[in-house]
Design a protein around this nucleic acid. Structure first.
Lengths: 256, 256
DNA sequence: CGCGTCCTTGAACCGCGTCAAGCCAGGTGG
DNA sequence: CCACCTGGCTTGACGCGGTTCAAGGACGCG
């Protein structure tokens, strides 16, 4: 007899399944069978691949990217512990985006069938999932406006605030918890990589950031917010400036 | 005794409530009390206003806009019959965007309390709503990439395809069912209004469109698709090119 | 008929994307 | 331990696409 590790033993308190499903239901899931481990830079799923279910991030940091023309990418979203990847639309069965781990990541894969029966049995789960999607939708709608109207400097400042918001910064050394390359920052902001270099220099001159090797330390969040103030970005302000240290600051670059 | 008109009598077959709630439940709603009529250019709700519920479009055409810096607007989404407006996020209680009627529009307002009890009683409804949001989310994610990577010409071509997709074109005269101003096309595409004028001229020279007064007739959808081909925009293709005529082509400009 | 709104067209400026050369750090192999 | 290589980063120079400013036209409405 093989030993079954119930989903109940999972330590992720953000997990939608654990939070909103009946305990009987939770017990039906074998954690060891749904968990998938990924290293940094691994694809969790790829644009064009078939959708058989959704992924919950148990622990880790992920970027969702849409590949564009001539190798240009657009990072449409960042996601971390407890968030959902690989949502489907009506009857659409292929991913329009890819998900890539930025640090070592564990996801739980729940296939369509199981998910559907979970929904039918647990109305609270469905409501929470719906709320989650509607909240992501409004966030993307807002970011969309930024990408169109902001200057390069503003877009990059906004990207830092966004990274800080989703992944947090290390309390002690103020480094971003998940270091991102210049190219990735460019892909988030929708600008060219060379422009990122230039703006970083300017930010450094203004003491908004400092650099240690290739990593970036956010020194003055209020200063960054000031740059984008006219777009009244309230959601990145006050809250979450102090956040837990999830990972040692270098894991994102690990090459295993 | 006042006469109650049940939600059952509503003629909108797309309505989520009618489709996915038990008939007993549907009967509880008094259609005459939830319906709100709007003229073209009316605000359905405004950025910054408090969220007391959601709106279902019973009939009409709506743009969702985010107001930006110095009177610049960004149209983040178009919506038509059966679609949902005014989704909330977690604990957020203010609209981040405005919804404006583009033609005469009827919406049904369902307050938070009623919606929540509908969700608890009708799991299918919740699932459908969730699917709707997740599908809108992926659409916005894709449009986000376009807005960043496309040239002005491409963005405008894409906007026409998007309008045609959501609102349809008149079968007979090929006019867009809901005419939009140059400014609105600019706000969708994230470009300046003068550029729209210039590109329209070019499109006309290439026989992709013709103009009648200020209204635009799409002559060559395949040609427009050709312009944006390298972004492989599959979702606007084949389907829906022939669509019902919802409204006389001029109502969108009516000034009542 | 005059006024306001929306649209068109021209001209000039400049932000930012492009191209290209050089730098720096880490890894590898002799 | 040094030499070399490679990939990511920096910096400069240039030119184009697109924004901005401005003037004039078309159309609808009172």
């Amino acid at each position: 007899m093989s030993e079954k590790i119930s989903c109940k033993n999972c330590d992720n308190s953000f997990c939608f399944i654990r939070q909103y499903c009946s305990s009987g239901w939770v017990n039906r899931i074998d954690l060891s069978k749904v968990q998938i481990h990924h290293h940094a830079k691994d694809n969790i799923f790829r644009e064009g691949g078939y959708v058989y279910g959704v992924y919950f991030i148990q622990r880790g940091n992920v970027k969702i990217i849409a590949t564009g023309v001539n190798n240009r990418e657009q990072i449409v979203r960042l996601a971390s512990d407890g968030q959902i990847l690989g949502h489907r639309g009506n009857g659409v069965d292929k991913y329009p985006v890819s998900a890539v781990a930025l640090s070592d990541t564990v996801v739980c894969f729940i296939d369509n069938e199981m998910l559907h029966s979970a929904f039918m049995d647990n109305p609270k789960l469905t409501i929470e999932m719906m709320t989650y999607y509607s909240s992501e939708l409004r966030k993307v709608e807002i970011r969309m406006k930024y990408l169109v109207q902001m200057t390069v400097k503003e877009k990059i400042a906004e990207s830092f605030l966004y990274i800080q918001k989703v992944f947090g910064i290390n309390k002690i050394n103020k480094m971003l918890n998940v270091p991102m390359s210049r190219q990735e920052i460019a892909d988030m902001s929708g600008v060219m990589q060379v422009q990122v270099s230039r703006e970083l220099k300017e930010f450094e001159d203004q003491n908004l950031i400092t650099r240690q090797g290739r990593e970036i330390r956010l020194m003055d969040l209020a200063g960054l917010q000031y740059i984008v103030r006219k777009y009244n970005i309230a959601q990145y302000a006050e809250q979450d400036i102090e956040q837990d240290v999830y990972y040692p600051p270098s894991i994102g670059y690990s090459n295993r």
